[in-house]
Design a binder for these strands. Structure first.
Lengths: 161, 161
DNA sequence: CGCCCAGTTTTGAGTAAGTATAATCTTGAG
DNA sequence: CTCAAGATTATACTTACTCAAAACTGGGCG
């Protein structure tokens, strides 16, 4: 369900200079720059996409940077709170997925394999009538659901047998 | 996080006549009309909203209709497969939530209490450029994120102390 | 520079939600 | 009535996440 990440990418992600730079981002966001935070933020930024906490820990472990799971949950919660990372609302998979907050884009979710794809956002979604709103909108995205190309292929193959 | 459901509503949901009617829906969708399916479909339809499997079992238990959890998961998976029920993509809460498939609407998710609200859909979201698509779109919705009125009140109260 | 302590990380135990497997029951076509 | 496909249930297990409390540390201050 995820393309493999090269070891080279992972090694770049934990380069001390890079970590120091990202540490500045953390301080700018109002967080103390600690190693677990630098590592997790760096790797999520390096590999991109929509990842679970366990994905991130697993990748870090591949380059001998092991962290307790609890630390990762704490760190991700902090990053989310200060707005460096957002929960990917796409849902579908069991685990909660996160992505670095960047320019707006929408999401396509495959109903079969649950993979999440980014869709460039040319236009932001329409804002509904004031009186329908149950609160204060802070951001919005479109979620497209359907079958990704791979799963379309699998389904047609199954139907032709 | 959920307004309580009245016992009266629950009793209506398990009325034998109603179940028989919904049984027709099940058969029309290509499923055999069994009691667990009628019960779960009926109660989700009766109470509306976005519910987890355990929510539904708990409500049924209140009117002495207990089902094994495994049955509920099987039933919901079947209902989803034939399109009577959809996974609510809103995410946020730990459990997967389901809703009966009805006319299109969008969702507002509170980032604090994770409550999900329906927003009437006047217009369907725009379809992105063909060549950006990673597959076949079957449906789409807009997800608005922010703070619901209750949580806005809580936050302003906390800031004023 | 070195001390301090609120903010972080870590440890270990616990829980909720969902999955796997296989046995048993039901139902309707023939 | 029979039997196989379909549906339900029991049991055990895994995964993703939470909680509480102890241990540690980044960075402001003297």
């Amino acid at each position: 369900m995820h393309e493999p990440i090269s070891l080279a990418t992972l090694r770049v992600a934990i380069d001390p200079e890079r970590l120091a730079l990202l540490g500045d981002d953390l301080r700018a966001a109002g967080l103390r720059a600690t190693r677990p935070r630098e590592l997790l933020y760096s790797i999520l930024k390096a590999i991109g996409g929509h990842r679970s906490v366990d994905d991130l820990l697993g990748l870090l472990a591949q380059v001998d940077e092991t962290l307790p799971r609890m630390s990762a949950y704490n760190v991700i919660a902090d990053l989310e709170r200060v707005g460096l990372v957002r929960r990917s609302g796409a849902g579908g998979s069991r685990a909660v997925l996160y992505e670095v907050k960047a320019d707006n884009h929408h999401h396509f979710v495959c109903r079969s394999c649950q993979a999440v794809f980014d869709i460039p956002a040319d236009t932001p979604p329409a804002i509904p009538d004031e009186h329908h709103l149950p609160g204060l909108i802070e951001e919005s995205e479109i979620i497209y659901r359907g079958l990704c190309r791979d799963c379309v292929a699998i389904e047609t193959a199954a139907n032709d047998e």
